[in-house]
Design a binder for these strands. Structure first.
Lengths: 202, 202
DNA sequence: TAAGATAGTAAGTACTCACTCACTATTGCG
DNA sequence: CGCAATAGTGAGTGAGTACTTACTATCTTA
């Protein structure tokens, strides 16, 4: 069982490249990840990368596609089959947090990509990811209002912004402390306050 | 009245340099701001910078000191003399938001600096800024609990994390839309939900 | 007003980056 | 097996980076 076979079929090599980027982003500033670092992390020379990707930008685009697919699939799976919209929101929140703890580089990559001035393909990928994420939030929040679980006067747009910000705040806090594990501990405590802001008072 | 006098005393040149960095960060990825870009923005050759700063890192450190001073002074001024802790929190929130709208590059710089692997002087500056910010939040939140304005069971640490995250969420949303003005519009709506999560139910 | 101190210029240097290309090793199929 | 297609190597290249240095312009003050 060879851990690092020299030759890989193109699609496997592309996947390995993307996974290398995600792993490297967990430990260092994503914008400082060089093609040389990616290549050496997967025990291949730098030139080999450009046999599978047109340029560095294409690598980032593929990485953000990887993220979008997995993150949306995971939160969808977590929320599926849960009756209560509020409970579904919580499940979505916790599975998102779990994803971030597993891949701490991901929020950094997304934030870094968003603040690019030029609309790179990777940036557009992040934008559509967040937009699709927002659709799911809106749906659940509206359902919650409809069934009386959430406050009837709830500002759904603001609640969606705050949902994302809540996770962003956890990420920021974990970067301050320098340990990702904190996120898992703090997530339920922070969500509790968020939830309290949404609930209908009865 | 000359807008760009060739010769400036050292301290004025240093201030102009820092302000250039803040302005440039409003329009582009902070980690892509080169010394050449800073110099040309202030109509000076690149070499002139290194007469006033030891290296690029020192420029960033000075920039983060500038931020820390102004941001803390502003939120302190906003909260000063307000009786109700909750109202003080809101004033602090709104003045912070106003600061971010005036200097949209600042949150990007802070986030970018935090995710550095190495503990640069600038990174440490951001860490102490956020820590000092946290002290203020804790104080107000505890006061709010004591006077009965906030829920007696409130998790103060989580509430502080969420406060920062709330602003972070607004920043993220404005980067998505590509217009900073949104922040000002959305801030009260998002804060309303946050506040609802803190308040004591009576 | 002369001269020393201060601030800015212009042309460098060494280095790192993304990307290329001629060549070689491996793989899989007729 | 033989050979064509595929994947990887290693030594480039040029552009862009932070930083240096020898020189010059401008300010300040005795």
């Amino acid at each position: 069982m060879e851990r690092h076979p020299k030759h890989l079929p193109a699609d496997e090599r592309r996947l390995a490249t993307v996974e290398s980027v995600i792993e490297l982003a967990a430990a260092q500033n994503p914008s400082e990840i060089t093609t040389a670092a990616i290549a050496s992390h997967m025990r291949v020379t730098q030139g080999a990368l450009f046999r599978h990707f047109l340029n560095k930008e294409a690598i980032w685009q593929a990485a953000m596609e990887w993220v979008a697919e997995r993150l949306l699939a995971r939160v969808d799976r977590a929320a599926a089959g849960i009756e209560s919209p509020l409970a579904a929101l919580e499940a979505m929140f916790m599975s998102h947090v779990e994803f971030v703890v597993e891949h701490p580089g991901v929020p950094r990559m997304m934030f870094g990509e968003l603040q690019r001035a030029e609309p790179t393909p990777a940036k557009r990928m992040v934008q559509t990811l967040i937009q699709r994420y927002g659709v799911r939030l809106h749906r659940l929040l509206e359902q919650g209002k409809a069934c009386g679980e959430l406050s009837s006067g709830l500002d759904v747009e603001a609640a969606a912004t705050l949902f994302v910000g809540t996770i962003q705040g956890l990420v920021m806090q974990s970067m301050l402390a320098g340990e990702v594990g904190r996120i898992r501990r703090d997530a339920p405590r922070v969500f509790a306050i968020y939830e309290r802001g949404l609930r209908s008072t009865q």
